[in-house]
């Protein structure tokens, strides 16, 4: 029983972080049709900025979250304004933007390395202490991660489903031209989506850094997981991404416990590939009928 509890808790903690990362990634893909290879660095940047502000002013975690969100939103906005905006609607947008954001990722990583150095820092915003469920230790930090992810994801869901703002985003994602005919400024929606996804990434980065340490490469692994999650959910399917994040995280936790941590990701990937052979459009993706 303890083993199951342990796996569930590890899975939920991991899943929370993956969900924050992949929901944003999926939102960007769904709306702009762009795969953001720099998303991992959005996360890393959020973690580092929160770290710097925490070291300088000694802010509490709540403010740290706000700072990480702001940093993530800012980099999302900058990415859109200086790069993506000029590429939208050009030939081979999907491929080119992947290359460009990969370039941006390596650029930010190098800048972080130059500013902070490669030495891994502990995240001062992490909360100490733990409680027990049975004989299983649950850190307060894990509880916070789960709560933050839940609140933010429900917040995004509410925003997308219940508000005029969210309707405009969904409409643009579903049919860009029709949305424009309703008076939606597509450019503004893209900017908002980049900011929103950047915000989620920033928080994800902060949360990840409380579980391990800060390093310029810290975004790589969660980004990889987020990729796989988005692919198996069906690219652009935001809800599917959230669900798959938790599902795959639980799987990873279980494999990690029974077989070995290093096989967690390979098992995840093999499962994903099997799923894709069965359903190439992803678990939650709808089959697109293309007229010839």
């Amino acid at each position: 029983m303890d083993v199951v509890i342990q796996i569930v808790i590890t899975g939920l903690t991991l899943g929370s972080m993956y969900a924050l990362a992949s929901v944003g990634l999926s939102l960007i893909y769904g709306t702009l049709g762009m795969f953001n290879m720099a998303h991992g660095l959005f996360m890393t940047l959020g973690a580092y900025v929160a770290y710097s502000v925490a070291v300088a002013f000694g802010i509490p975690l709540v403010l740290g979250i706000v700072v990480a969100m702001a940093a993530g939103a800012l980099i999302g906005i900058i990415t859109h304004l200086v790069m993506v905006r000029f590429m939208l609607g050009t030939a081979d947008f999907g491929t080119n933007v992947l290359v460009a954001t990969a370039g941006l990722g390596i650029l930010i990583e190098d800048l972080l390395l130059k500013v902070y150095g490669g030495y891994p820092y502990p995240q001062p915003l992490a909360v100490e202490g733990f409680t027990r469920i049975g004989r299983v230790t649950v850190t307060y930090q894990a509880v916070i991660i789960f709560a933050v992810a839940l609140i933010l994801i429900l917040g995004v869901a509410w925003l997308l489903l219940k508000t005029r703002f969210g309707r405009a985003i969904r409409a643009t994602a579903l049919n860009r031209e029709a949305a424009m005919l309703m008076g939606v400024k597509a450019d503004t929606v893209f900017l908002q989506v980049m900011a929103l996804a950047g915000m989620l990434a920033g928080v994800a980065g902060l949360m990840i850094s409380t579980q391990a340490t800060l390093s310029p490469q810290m975004g790589g692994d969660p980004l990889l997981k987020a990729f796989v999650i988005c692919v198996v959910a069906g690219l652009g399917n935001v809800w599917g991404a959230g669900l798959c994040a938790f599902g795959l995280a639980l799987l990873e936790a279980a494999i990690g416990f029974y077989i070995g941590v290093r096989f967690g990701f390979p098992a995840m990937l093999i499962l994903v590939i099997l799923v894709l052979i069965w359903r190439p459009q992803g678990l939650f993706g709808s089959e697109k009928v293309v007229r010839l």
Binding site: G105, L107, E109
Partner: peptide, 19 residues
């Protein structure tokens, strides 16, 4: 040691300006 910086910039600039 600006290798990665230059790589990133080259990728971005070429893809945006001269795909």
């Amino acid at each position: 040691d600006a290798r990665n910086l230059v790589l990133g910039l080259a990728l971005i600039i070429f893809v945006v300006v001269m795909p």
